[in-house]
């Protein structure tokens, strides 16, 4: 699949945003401190930025509101509805933190649950597609949820260390989630690389009972929408190398930095280390998301010799 930058940016940014909002909703941090107030505002901004960037790849973005209508059958529609509804508890929590300086458990915990549901809907858009065997697994939503949680606790660790309380708790949980997320992703990659293709040129043409089927001529010499959108192959050559880069940047380095922060306990070192951990984690996540699209082989390529 062609990795569209707008979708990669959307899933990375909104995943981090929902993760942060979900962790803030747990009330582990002191809602009256400046850095937690900023975090309460940053989370919705990241989510909104992600949602806006996702509309960039639409052919007719002016009709995007219609995407809220088909929640009964479409995961994309469910995601849109949940994304908007989730803003309600997040805004209430932000209000209580920023204006009143306190944590409201009801709004916080409802917000946490709804953030989780929204990320799950995002993942199910991909996981529900049978035509993309690589994505069509329960590991896909598991990875999305764990990555969102890990990103959320990482960002919360920054807020906690900056405010002086709760940083170490968030950093410790963040380290656990980072490890869990990459273990799940490892399982996802192992499954992908040992897949027996569900569909083949033989089943796609129905000519398998005659013999081995090979594409002789494409419909047209040049590319078309399908081959441009679904025929992306560059990543497969470097997939292993890129996945190692993703694991090191998004897994090993952030965990080391979190350990440094936790051992330091307080002070500027903790803030610098946790900010760097977030930066490396985001970098690793972008590589992971790029591979998520680029490595997935679409069944239609059976008709195009890919």
């Amino acid at each position: 699949m062609h990795p569209a930058p707008s979708i990669i940016l959307f899933t990375t940014l909104s995943g981090l945003g929902y993760g942060l909002a979900a962790v803030l909703g747990l009330g582990l941090l002191d809602a009256s401190t400046l850095s937690v107030k900023i975090a309460h505002l940053a989370a919705p901004v990241m989510i909104a930025g992600g949602l806006l960037s996702s509309t960039l790849h639409l052919g007719n973005p002016q009709r995007a509101w219609r995407a809220l209508s088909q929640w009964r059958s479409s995961w994309l529609s469910r995601e849109g509805v949940m994304a908007i509804l989730t803003f309600v508890p997040l805004m209430i929590s932000a209000w209580f933190s920023v204006i009143e300086g306190r944590y409201l458990p009801a709004a916080g915990l409802i917000g946490t649950a709804m953030c989780g549901i929204t990320v799950f809907c995002t993942a199910m858009i991909y996981a529900s597609l049978r035509s993309l065997q690589a994505w069509n697994t329960g590991f896909t939503p598991l990875c999305y949820l764990l990555f969102a949680a890990a990103g959320g606790f990482l960002l919360a660790a920054v807020a906690g260390y900056s405010s002086g309380t709760g940083g170490t708790v968030c950093a410790a949980i963040a380290a656990l989630f980072v490890v869990a997320a990459w273990i799940a992703k490892h399982q996802w990659w192992t499954r992908l690389r040992t897949l027996v293709p569900l569909s083949t040129p033989e089943s796609a043409t129905g000519l398998g009972n005659i013999g081995h089927v090979r594409l002789f001529e494409r419909p047209h010499i040049n590319d078309n929408y399908l081959t441009r959108e679904m025929g992306f192959k560059v990543a497969r050559k470097h997939a292993l190398k890129l996945s190692k880069i993703a694991v090191i940047a998004g897994g090993a380095v952030p965990v080391l930095l979190l350990v440094v922060a936790m051992l330091s306990g307080v002070g500027a070192v903790t803030i610098v280390a946790s900010v760097l951990a977030v930066g490396f984690y985001a970098l690793g996540l972008v590589v992971e998301r790029w591979l998520f699209f680029a490595e997935a082989r679409h069944a239609v390529m059976n008709y195009y010799g890919g």
Partner: peptide, 9 residues
């Protein structure tokens, strides 16, 4: 669209 395949027994 018309694709053309070679089938080899």
């Amino acid at each position: 669209r018309i694709h053309t395949f070679e089938v080899l027994p």
